[in-house]
Amino acid sequence: MRPLRLLPALAAVVALALAGCSAGSSPDAPGDAAGQTLRFGDQAGQQQALLEASGVLAGTPYQVEFSQFPAAAPLLEALRGEAVDIGVAGDSPTLNALGASDDISIVSATRTPSAGGLAVLVPPGSPIRSVADLRGKRVSPTTQGSIGHYLLLQALREAGIPANEVQISFLQPVDAAAAFRTGAIDAWSTWDPYTAVAQQDNGARVVRDNRGLSPGLSFLDANNDSLDDPDKRAAMTDFVARYARALEWAQSHPDELTAIYAKLTQRPPEVAKTIAQRAQRRAVPLDATAVGDLQGVADNLRSFGVLRQDVQVAPRVRDLGAPAP
């Protein structure tokens, strides 16, 4: 009877071997993007506006399907669950996702050269004039592990204030915006488009932006199963190159980008213009500099207790090869 008990296991091994042969290659073999559907995770329509305004997706042999998320945390959860193939996220949420799962890799990087709408905000009439005044106050860094959370913790450390001396309340962006308007929180650490909307609609004032506190990096992160599919990876590789060209296009076409962003999101032109100006980024190589900067953020998050375990960045990079234009 023993040989019969071994048959299912043997059949499974043979099936896996045949599946590998039918795929025709190892995970790193060339693929064909034609006919693929690439599911892209975006936040608040910003990247979709960029890609549509620049026209870089014209003539792709694959389809791009956009899904919109209010913040990086739910986007990365969808990425882990294979609801999307590739998506955009900042440094802190990317690291939290890497720490929580082996299902995600970093495939491309961008950098904002100046303050890009990531800031700690207070209402216009607030007595808070500096980060030091946040002691004992109610502050939302938007979602836990977000770039807003990292900025707040960095700003508090810079001011010499222990984080436990601030009343931190994690809220989804829509809830945080409502709490900010009604005075339920005293300050809000968030990012565009929420920063721009709060400034335009509520006269919000910046008490600290991200200059000197974060490296200004954002990433395209991908699901590893999608990366291991040669055809899907071929589509992603092409997409990453086109995305870099779109970022380059945006440098010299701010008005076109503003117009399509305002149309896509139904935001006022003044808000759309501010967001477009502050969203100027460039693709950068996933080299030792970028990886080192992200590792520095990871080490800070570990020291803050946001990351529950060490995260080593370099092994989690699968560069799809779009150098800075």
Rank of each mutant, 00 (worst) to 15 (best):
Ile128Trp: 10
Pro127Thr: 07
Gly116Gln: 15
Ala73Lys: 08
Ser101Gly: 08
Ser105Pro: 00
Ala132Val: 01
Ala78Tyr: 00
Thr142Gln: 10
Thr112Gly: 05
Thr110Ala: 06
Ser101Leu: 02
Arg129Asp: 05
Gly99Tyr: 12
Ser108Ile: 02
Gly145Lys: 06
Leu152Val: 03
Gly81Lys: 14
Ser146His: 07
Thr112Asn: 11
Ala97Leu: 07
Ile106Thr: 05
Ile86His: 04
Gly116Val: 15
Asp85Phe: 00
Ile147Arg: 12
Ser101Phe: 04
Ala78Met: 00
Thr60Arg: 15
Ala71Cys: 11
Ser126Glu: 10
Pro61Met: 14
Pro93Asp: 10
Ala72Cys: 11
Ser140Asp: 12
Thr143Met: 11
His149Phe: 03
Glu77Arg: 14
Ile104Arg: 01
Gln68Cys: 05
Ala71Leu: 11
Gly59Lys: 10
Pro123Cys: 06
Pro61His: 12
Val131Gly: 07
Gln154Val: 00
Leu98Tyr: 11
Asp133Ile: 07
Val107Asn: 08
Asp103Thr: 04
Thr143Phe: 04
Gly136Leu: 13
Asn96Val: 09
Glu77Ile: 02
Thr94Lys: 05
Ala78Glu: 01
Gly87Asp: 00
Ala97Val: 06
Val131Met: 12
Leu151Asp: 01
Gly87Ser: 00
Thr110Ile: 04
Pro70Asn: 00
Ala109Lys: 10
Ile128Phe: 05
Arg129Pro: 01
Leu151Thr: 03
Leu75Pro: 02
Leu118Gly: 01
Ala109Gln: 02
Pro127Asp: 04
Gly117Cys: 03
Val139Lys: 13
Glu65Ala: 15
Ala100Pro: 14
Gly59Pro: 15
Gly136Cys: 11
Leu151Trp: 07
Ser92Asp: 05
Arg111His: 10
Gly81Cys: 04
Ser92Thr: 05
Gly87Trp: 01
Gly90His: 09
Gly59Arg: 07
Ser101Asn: 00
Ile86Cys: 03
Val64Glu: 07
Ser92Tyr: 05
Ala109Arg: 06
Arg80Trp: 03
Ile147Asn: 15
Thr110Gln: 08
